[in-house]
Design a binder for these strands. Structure first.
Lengths: 145, 145
DNA sequence: TTTATAACATAGTATTTTTATCGGGAATGA
DNA sequence: TCATTCCCGATAAAAATACTATGTTATAAA
């Protein structure tokens, strides 16, 4: 039960942008260099974040990305869900598709719902600002998980 | 971030054995029929459960499996960990291998550790007996997630 | 107005993981 | 003996993952 690298990179990217906010647009190239992640791969991750309204973008020279709100106004749950789709531990809780037609008489559904709930409660209780604050070593390169 | 079908099947299998405990050995064939899961696939799942001491087995005619303890003495966490390896949301928390050499200066490590903790606290708080109790419709086929 | 820049879009690909299936053993009760 | 049932390893198809490649489009700066 692992979070994908896209999900992990998305958090690192959002932290990176939050920490390097100066009013200027922040380019993929800069983030990629600081985080040691491929530019092209980051593009794939930043795309849903922009479409989802978590980032705003500007094209052309000296273009890039900026946060659309203050770091305290993002939950980590919101960021992860944009990338991962849903943090549900089983597909039948995803809502979109009704894979399981045995929900009424399912012995384990309530169990998985409970797990889903504690996961959501946790990730929705931590903000991007919390992650930025936690990162004490702000002078060091931002190598992260 | 999904639990594998093996993990889900393992829970269903343990519930099935707990509910059908009569002092007789319970065969894979019976479980497979009741749960509508392939016998061969169930064999792969039951193997680590037996090796891990969660089940005891008997070969030969009228052989099969039994619980090694009472249902109340199993946590769902224990069962899932035997099959899934670890419920850690990121690999660097798995302990076995030290994939990440940047732990000291990692902005997100504490966040993932916190998520890992709430997941473990939840799955270690629910017992197999809880799942058996929850399953009200004990007359119906045990179709589950 | 040109041009370099950087976002945006989409397709391809190699690797790994998942989800099984298959074939045959080894033990054992009837 | 012998059918049954657990046990064990190999194989294989399918899906997901983690990138890579090749562009196109908008735009600020020269």
């Amino acid at each position: 039960m692992k979070v994908s690298t896209k999900g992990r990179y998305a958090l690192r990217m959002m932290i990176d942008i939050a920490k390097n906010e100066t009013g200027e647009w922040i380019s993929i190239k800069d983030i990629a260099r600081r985080q040691n992640i491929s530019e092209k791969y980051l593009e794939q991750i930043v795309s849903p974040l922009t479409r989802g309204g978590l980032l705003v973008s500007s094209r052309g020279p000296s273009g890039g990305y900026m946060l659309s709100r203050t770091p305290a106004e993002y939950t980590t749950g919101e960021i992860l869900r944009v990338i991962e789709g849903s943090m549900a531990p089983v597909a039948c809780l995803d809502g979109i598709e009704n894979l399981c037609d045995q929900k009424e008489r399912c012995a384990t559904l309530a169990f998985w719902q409970g797990l889903y709930q504690v996961i959501n409660e946790y990730i929705d209780s931590i903000t991007l600002q919390d992650l930025v604050n936690r990162d004490a070593c702000s002078d060091l390169p931002d190598f992260s998980i």
